[in-house]
């Protein structure tokens, strides 16, 4: 009796936590189907109004006051998130490979320089980076939107840790087998760190998807509005905000990152927990 009561406590805590996390999302889902004026008065019902589901078609295809159609913003966001995730992996994989497996002059200097950039995220160097992009004539372009976000050290550091865990004997066995550096990278290093690459992809995709400050600054062209920017633009200052549309857009913005996490969950957990032996 006593034991089962004790068992209930962790469950109660967990259920409470789940509710705390899920409630705002549910309010967004329920709210998106209701009347905008009612939401503005603070009268949100927790029961979705099925007749209001058409709001999703409206925002996707037509958009709302202040922002373009959401399908377009979703595409921009997806493009940006994918470009950042793939770009970062493509950049950090060889750089981590170099500082881990090769002896060259100033190797550690190179590593610490990469490390230092961790302390200078885009937000800190916003103005100079904007200056550079402006000189390169990359303002209001997809390239300008993604490139500055690709250059960062986090992925390099994570890959370095993964690579350091590869036993020396494996490297030596590959040398005995006659595998050159590129072959070793392709045949051994990348397959062995597959789970870590997948985990990193998830993290980087979500990171890219959630970018706000840089896109706001560098892309003033509405065609380059990401969905996150779109939501902000929908919340008007002088016009009446269509809250149901805002919530519908928020729900739509939520779907792709959640889908990526769910699809790659198995790899993600594997990559974070076990160093694939």
């Amino acid at each position: 009796m006593r034991r089962s009561a004790l068992h209930l406590i962790p469950h109660a805590v967990l259920i409470l936590a789940i509710l705390l996390f899920a409630l705002p999302i549910w309010i967004a889902i329920a709210g998106s189907t209701q009347d905008s004026a009612a939401i503005a008065r603070g009268e949100v019902s927790l029961v979705p109004n099925l007749n209001g589901l058409s709001v999703y078609r409206d925002v996707l295809l037509d958009g709302s006051a202040g922002a373009g159609p959401v399908w377009r913003a979703l595409l921009v966001s997806a493009g940006m998130a994918l470009a950042i995730a793939f770009g970062k992996i493509a950049l950090s994989l060889p750089s981590a490979y170099a500082v881990t497996f090769f002896r060259f002059p100033f190797r550690m200097t190179a590593f610490w320089l990469i490390f230092l950039t961790l302390m200078l995220p885009v937000e800190v160097r916003l103005i100079p980076t904007f200056q550079v992009m402006s000189s390169l004539d990359l303002i209001n372009s997809f390239t300008g939107l993604t490139i500055p976000l690709i250059a960062s050290a986090t992925a390099t550091l994570l890959f370095r840790q993964t690579f350091l865990a590869i036993p020396d004997e494996l490297v030596e066995a590959a040398r005995m087998d006659g595998a050159g550096p590129l072959r070793f990278l392709r045949d051994i290093v990348i397959p062995v760190s597959g789970a870590n690459i997948a985990a990193l992809f998830v993290i980087l995709f979500v990171y890219g998807w959630n970018q706000y400050l840089w896109p706001l600054l560098v892309a003033t062209d509405p065609k380059l509005d990401t969905v996150v920017i779109g939501i902000v633009k929908m919340i008007g200052v002088d016009t009446a905000t269509e809250w149901n549309k805002v919530m519908a857009t928020a729900v739509l913005a939520l779907i792709p990152p959640v889908a990526v996490v769910l699809l790659m969950q198995r790899w993600f957990v594997k990559g974070l927990t076990e160093g694939d032996k």
């Binding site: 036993p167 004997e169 494996l170 030596e172 066995a173 590959a174 040398r175 005995m176 087998d177 006659g178 595998a179 045949d187 051994i188 397959p191 062995v192 597959g194 694939d276 032996k277």
Partner: peptide
């Protein structure tokens, strides 16, 4: 010469098999 050019083979203590 490089290890692979020496016409030798080595058995390692931890086997060093390619895990994947």
């Amino acid at each position: 010469l490089d290890p692979s050019a020496r016409d030798i083979a080595m058995v390692f203590q931890n086997y060093a098999l390619y895990p994947h």
